[in-house]
Design a protein around this nucleic acid. Sequence first.
DNA 1: TTAAAACCTGACATTGACGTCAGGGGCAAG
DNA 2: CTTGCCCCTGACGTCAATGTCAGGTTTTAA
Lengths: 113, 113
Amino acid sequence: MRIGDLVIATGASARSLRYYEQQGLLASERSPGGQRVYPESAAERVALIRSLLAAGLSSSTIQDVLPCITEKAIRTPWLAERLRSELNRVEDQISSLHRTRDILADLVEHYAV
Amino acid sequence: MRIGDLVIATGASARSLRYYEQQGLLASERSPGGQRVYPESAAERVALIRSLLAAGLSSSTIQDVLPCITEKAIRTPWLAERLRSELNRVEDQISSLHRTRDILADLVEHYAV
DNA sequence: TTAAAACCTGACATTGACGTCAGGGGCAAG
DNA sequence: CTTGCCCCTGACGTCAATGTCAGGTTTTAA
């Protein structure tokens, strides 16, 4: 598939897809004319990238972490620690969001017009 | 309390506190010399502001929503709708984060070095 | 074969919540 | 009263992901 197809498949903009590639998060083959060609699996990978970005991981962190999600790659102790700390961050973020949601939900329920 | 005290009480930087004021999120009295003076309740308000910011609400949205959390203020249907849509956003964000957490947790558990 | 549609690179612009610096006052202790 | 610390405003810098534009090339369909 070409980049336009991947745009449709993922909802990400072409700009974003090129950016992910530039950051080393997403690989592509090239057509003889130099246009990007993606395998089908790219859509899933983009979804994964976006969910990690949405969870607040930086692209350089994702770059470290991705190969060990998709393949069973180089697991150094350093990377394991990195993973644990990101997991902790995300869990803190979740519980903080829960509290905020409760505030909003309370407002919506009890003070409805 | 002066701004430095509020910095200590909340963990927010002085820059942030002034920014919140500029955005209409945080009020202050002024000393005769023009320095900001806050009531004790300011610390709690700052915590609320920060949790809403962390949940992805923009400061202009927070500006709309805050008066109706702290006082029982002007509840228009428009504002009620706004609240509901922010609540939905936060809930979507939470479930998305849950999935991402599971991915990371799975990695940490099953592929430990 | 040719026009339209899709794609390329490169570069500058944007957004939001701050950091940071400069230059200048306020305020309590000694 | 002066020293040292805290505070003020204003302005420019930052960062990350993405928008956007220009000028040119490739691919596709007629």
